[in-house]
Amino acid sequence: MTGFLSRPYFTDRVFYLYEDTYKFAGEQERLVTYHSSTADPVQVRIDDELNRTLTIGGQSYAIADISNPYSIKFRVTYPNGHVYSVEDNNGLLWSYDDKGNIVMAIQVYANGERIKEEGEEDFQPSALVIGAYPDYHIKRGMPGFLFFAIGLLIFGWCSFRYQAFQDLMFRLSPQRFMYENPEPSDFYYLMSKVGGIVVMIGSIIVAFKAY
């Protein structure tokens, strides 16, 4: 049930602008809208094949694809006139200012509020490129952990509840070959139950790893 209800979390492609998560909300003609539950919506207007305009909080950022046969590059122009370039290095985006210096992403928060340093832009150039191009949007979480957690939960429940399963695990244990005509003891059954409880608790922890 948890996996079914969480399906949109794992299947929807998203992007991030600092602490805010955005996902596709709708498209009308050449205008794509992305919504976040914690911030203003983002709109991306596809001007033409090489140019896009990303708008957030009333501010518009022009993004141009200036790629060549040897590299994938973008030019990002801010409302204040500042221009940055963004290069795709095997899927990893690097931002540079107009002097060719790398722009590092530094995030400082106090009481849940972001504190900007002097001269720092509202958003990183690479983050704007990611928002403008769906190819850079990602899927969240690792749903494989849910299947692993289900397996652990079943194993733990059987170890706790069913003596037949406890006997099976005893017969499969290599330690029984150390004794002649070995039989499970009361202590073994007790430890099987305790172990089953531990495994079931562990399955819950593993399930949270999926998120």
Rank of each mutant, 00 (worst) to 15 (best):
V108H: 11
D98N: 13
E113P: 00
L93K: 02
K99Q: 15
I106A: 04
N111M: 12
G100V: 10
V103T: 09
K116C: 12
G112I: 03
G100W: 05
E113Y: 06
Q107T: 13
A110V: 12
G91M: 04
A110I: 07
A110K: 11
M104N: 12
Y96I: 02
G100D: 07
E87W: 00
A105I: 09
L93P: 07
Y109P: 03
G91S: 02
I102F: 12
G91D: 01
I106P: 00
Q107C: 02
Y109V: 05
G100F: 03
Y109C: 04
Y96T: 01
V108E: 08
L92G: 13
A105T: 13
A110M: 03
E87N: 01
N90M: 03
K99E: 14
D97T: 08
A105H: 14
E87R: 02
D97R: 08
V108I: 07
L92H: 15
L93N: 08
R114I: 05
I115Y: 03
I106Q: 07
D97H: 13
Y96N: 05
V103M: 05
G112P: 03
E87K: 00
S95C: 04
D98F: 09
S95E: 04
N101D: 10
Y96C: 12
N101K: 06
G91A: 00
V103A: 02
R114G: 06
G91Y: 02
V103G: 02
I115E: 13
Y96Q: 00
M104A: 11
I102L: 14
K99V: 08
G91F: 01
L93W: 00
I102A: 07
L93F: 01
R114D: 11
A105M: 10
N90G: 00
D88E: 01
I106F: 04
I115G: 02
L92A: 14
N101M: 05
N101E: 11
Y96K: 03
A105W: 11
K116V: 12
L93V: 03
G112A: 07
K116F: 15
E87C: 00
V108L: 04
K99C: 14
K116M: 14
S95T: 05
Q107K: 08
Q107R: 08
D98S: 13
I106V: 12
Y96D: 02
K116Y: 15
N101W: 01
G112C: 06
E113R: 05
G91K: 03
